[in-house]
Amino acid sequence: MTTSQTETLDHGPAGGDLPEGKDASRTGRIGDRVFRLASSGSGVLLLAIMAAIAVFLVIQALPALRANTAPFLTEKIWNPNAVPPRFGIAALAFGTVVSSLIALVIATPVAVAVALFISHYAPRRLAATLGYVVDLLAAVPSVVYGLWGAVFLVPLIMDPASWLNRNLAFLPIFNGQPVSSGKSIFTASVVLAIMILPIIAAISREVFLQVPKANEEAALALGATRWEMVRMAVLPFGRPGVISASMLGLGRALGETIAVALIVSASFEIDWNVMMPGGNSIAANIANTFQEAGATGRGALIASGLVLFVITLVVNMAARAVIARRKEYARAGA
């Protein structure tokens, strides 16, 4: 079954034997041309904007990077306003990636479970309500999640964090004894997880609802229980969609600014003990220091933005590669 072969549309005039009908075929051709121009124009425009952003970032960042006396990629200290300026992306990038990954690890399984419950387990009316609530949660602005995290979760996180430390201390990330304050990367991760959960759940639910009824019936008729049916027919079919959804969530977590800025107690260290107070991220650092940054400081922040841009790009490409690996199957199922 070939479903997505590229179809070549015939742009030429309609078959020669047909009666003249010139007007009709001409307007058709003009419509085609306009549409082709409009669509390819938007495509090109999008690429041009992307390139322009990249060029802008590079040009703005270059003077600061030239003035920098530390290796930008490996330096942890962020001190662009000192004389001479000394700053690097290492600690910020670390905080960004680690907090987002932890958020993803927490959020994805829960989101998939929520999506499955809505699509395949809940009674119809409950499913509709729950679906609506999830969509609503996805639309809550991140500053609200940030405030909730800072005011409510930071004091509360101590108990579960201590529990993780007592029981899972053999993992380096849980090795740190949580002390007085919960303003840590871990707390930021939990808030990020809650923030991205509705997006992942909403998209996964849509994907699970697309599973052909015929495949579900095939599994059930073979004597699969409901859960076995989900594993045989629903999850494999939904896999690429869930990956895409997670990547969208990861992208949002990587770029999240205000929620992280409100929670972490900005530090510039690489510390695998994510329970310890401290942590930072590229976006949060930009938000926290842009106002009082000098010329070099702004250039440095823009350079950090460029790094964030690259990280996001790499993540997206990796996700595409994962999805494409099983394209043969994905296409056959479409």
Partner: peptide, 16 residues
Amino acid sequence: RRTIGMVFQRPNPFPT
């Protein structure tokens, strides 16, 4: 359903 097999109107092999 494990003892009584079924074949459907449209072929429905598991696409994945």
